[in-house]
Write a protein that binds this DNA or RNA. Structure first.
Lengths: 336, 336
DNA sequence: AAAAACCCTGCAAACGTTTGCGAAAGATAT
DNA sequence: ATATCTTTCGCAAACGTTTGCAGGGTTTTT
C-alpha cells in the first residue's frame, strides 16, 4: 500500500500545468486563478502532498533547523533546558538537531563541524567541561550562523548568552548558611576555567567577606560529582577545625556530601548545613531533603531558543544580549 | 572576517576545472589524475570546504537524519534512551532530530508530519500516553520510512520494537521481596491500559502465586508519583494487616513510599521492604538507598537506533524484530 | 480600430551535488 | 601507418523547489 511522497512536478503533470503554477497556487499567489488554485489544492490534499524541505532549504539557503550541543543529555538540568528549547523551536516551526558532546572536547568539535555541514540556521551550545579552545565556535560565527551559548558559556567569543544568575544564587545560598549560624563554609566546585565556577566562587567569597568571615582556600575544592564528594569529604570532616557548612556546585555533589556527613555521624542541619544547586530530581529524595538553588532549566532553554530565533529571523541585529535567568533559594531540611 | 562556506563550484572556478572533476577528485575517484586530486584537496583544505549536506541529501534522496519522538525529554529514563540513540546515530554518521510529544496526541501527529516532510531516513518513537489512533505512524510506513518503536510500543502496527522486560523485572523484584521474608506485598502502578502496567502486574501476580501468597486487590493501587504515594501510603500502613513490602512502578513513587514509611516510624528494611523500578538519579540519594530494577535506558536507546540503522542501510530486510532488553535487580538498602 | 491594461501562465535559471556518457589526447599494439 | 586502448576530463541532466521575466489571451480605454 506504499505511496511515496508526491512532488510539485507530479501535481503539475497530473493537472497538465507547469510546476511554477503549482508552486504559486499552493502559496495562494494572487497571479493564479481561483479555479487553478482549487484544482491544485484538491489534488495536493488528496495525495497528501508535503513540500520537500530539503529542496526548499537548498533553494532558499535557509534551513529551518537549529542545532543544540549539550554536554550530557542524561542530566536533569540539561534535559530540562532541552525541553524548553524544543518547545519554542517547535512553535517557531524549527526542527532541533540534538548533539551530545559527552564532555569530550573532540566530540564537541565534531558536532560543530557536522552542524555547519548541515547548514543549520543557528546553534545553541553549552560548553563541554574540558573545552579551552574555542576555534570551532568561532568557525560557526565565521560561517554566518547565529550562535547562542547557554549555561556553560564562553567569554572568549562575542555572542548572545543565557546564564543562570550564578553569582546571586551562590551569594544568597552562602548568605543563608551564614545567617543560620554557619561560620566555616566549604565550597565544592567544577573546574575553575568554567564561568559558572568563577561566578559562584565570587558569590561565595563576597558573601563570606560581607559577614567578615575569613576565606580558607583549603575549603575550596574541585569536586562536582557524588562519587568524588564521598571520597574527599571524610578527610575534611576529620580536621580539627572542620567546616560547619557546605555549598556544592550541584545536587549530586551535595548528595555525596550528605552521605559522607551522615556516615561521620554528624547531625544535619545542626552540626553541618548543606546547600546544593539545581533542584534536580534527587533533591527531594534526600533525607533530610536538600536545600538548593533552583535553576529554572526549562525557562533557560526557552529563553535561549527565543534569543536564537530572533537572531535568525532578523528581529534583533547587532548587539549581543546577555540574558540572566533568576535563581531562587529552596529551603528544605539540610539547612537550619 | 566572515568567510561563507565554499562550494564545489568555487573550487572548480578557482582551479579552472569543472565541478564534476572536483567532485570526483574529492571522492578519490580513479578517473582523476593524482596531480588534480592534490590540487583540489589542498584548496579544499585551505578554504575549509564542507559538502553541503542539503544538496547531497536532495541529490541522493537520502537524508542522513533520523527523527526521534519521545513523550517527555525531561525524564531520566527517556533522556537515557536519547543519550543511547545519539551515541549510535553519531557513530553511524546520522543526525538526530528531536521531537517531544509532551504527552499530547495532537503534537505527536504534528511531529510525525514534520518528520515526513523533512524526509528523514528513519523514525524512532515512543507513544504518547493518550494515543489510541495510529494512522500517523502508518503514514510513516506508507512513505517508505523505517520505523522502530521503543518502550511505549504500539501493537496495532507491524514494525520493529524494543521493550524492557517488564514481566521478568517485576517478577524478579517481587520474588526477591518474598524470598527475603515479605508476605504481604503492595503494588503501586501506572494506569492499567499501558502495556508496561499490564506486564508488570502479571509479573507481580505470578510471583505471588508461585510462592502461594494470596493476592489482595486492595493492595494494588494506581499511583505513579512521589506525591500520590505520600498521600495514599499512610492509610495503608495504618491497617491492622499492613503490608510488609512495596513494589513501585518507578523510583519516584518508591521514594514517596519510603518517605511515608519513615514518617510512620517503621524501620526499613526490617519492617518494610521497598522495590523501585528504573534506577534513576534519585535511587542512590535515598536513605537507605533504593533497591530497584535497572532498566538500561541507554542500552535500549542504542538497541533501537541500531535496529533502525540496520533497516535504513538495508542490512536487515523483511522480518520485524522484537528486541527485549533485559532488566536486572539492584539490591541496596530498602530490602533485606 | 488600435492601443493600453490586465489576468493568467510557462520558461528557465538557480540552490550544490553526483554521475552516465562522450570526447580529446596520448600511449600502445598491429 | 592505422587501429585500439587508456587516461583524464567536461557536458548535461537530475533531485524539488522558487521566482524574475516574458508572453499569450482577454478586456478595457481612447
Amino acid at each position: 500500500m506504499n505511496k511515496p511522497q508526491i512532488t510539485i512536478k507530479d501535481i503539475g503533470r497530473a493537472l497538465d500545468i507547469s510546476p511554477s503554477t503549482v508552486s504559486r497556487a499552493l502559496k495562494n499567489h494572487p497571479d493564479i486563478s481561483q479555479s487553478t488554485k482549487d484544482a491544485v489544492n484538491k489534488y495536493a490534499k488528496e495525495f497528501n502532498y508535503k513540500p520537500n524541505t530539503l529542496a526548499l532549504s537548498l533553494r532558499m539557503s535557509r534551513n529551518n533547523t537549529i542545532g543544540v550541543i549539550v554536554p550530557e543529555i542524561n542530566n536533569y538540568f540539561f534535559s530540562s533546558i532541552l525541553s524548553g528549547i524544543e518547545q519554542v523551536a517547535n512553535e517557531g516551526d524549527f526542527n532541533v538537531i540534538l548533539c551530545q558532546s559527552s564532555e569530550s572536547y573532540e566530540k564537541e568539535v565534531r558536532n560543530t563541524q557536522a552542524l555547519i555541514a548541515t547548514r543549520v540556521s543557528g546553534v545553541l551550545a553549552s560548553l563541554c567541561k574540558h573545552t579551552t579552545n574555542y576555534d570551532h565556535f568561532q568557525e560557526i560565527i565565521d560561517s554566518d550562523i547565529p550562535l547562542v551559548f547557554f549555561d556553560r558559556i564562553c567569554i572568549g567569543i562575542s555572542t548572545d548568552r543565557v546564564v543562570v544568575d550564578d553569582y546571586k544564587g551562590a551569594f544568597a545560598a552562602v548568605e543563608y548558611l551564614i545567617q543560620t549560624g554557619c561560620k566555616r563554609i566549604a565550597f565544592y566546585s567544577s573546574p575553575f576555567h568554567l564561568e559558572i565556577s568563577k561566578n559562584r566562587k565570587n558569590g561565595y567569597m563576597d558573601a563570606l567577606r560581607k559577614y567578615g568571615l575569613t576565606v580558607d582556600e583549603s575549603l575550596i575544592r574541585v569536586c562536582d560529582t557524588r562519587e568524588e564528594a564521598i571520597i574527599i569529604t571524610p578527610e575534611i570532616l576529620d580536621r580539627p577545625n572542620r567546616p560547619d557548612g557546605f555549598f556544592a556546585i550541584n545536587d549530586h555533589c551535595a548528595a555525596g556530601i550528605l552521605y559522607a556527613v551522615k556516615l561521620a555521624k554528624l547531625r544535619i542541619p545542626q552540626d553541618i548545613g548543606i546547600f546544593g544547586f539545581s533542584d534536580g530530581e534527587l533533591a527531594k529524595a534526600c533525607d533530610p531533603m536538600l536545600s538548593t538553588v533552583e535553576q529554572h532549566g526549562y525557562e533557560m532553554g526557552k529563553n535561549a531558543a527565543k534569543l536564537l530565533l530572533d537572531k535568525i529571523n532578523g528581529v534583533t541585529h547587532g548587539q549581543y544580549t546577555n540574558k540572566i535567568v533568576k535563581t531562587n533559594l529552596i529551603i528544605r531540611g539540610t539547612t537550619r
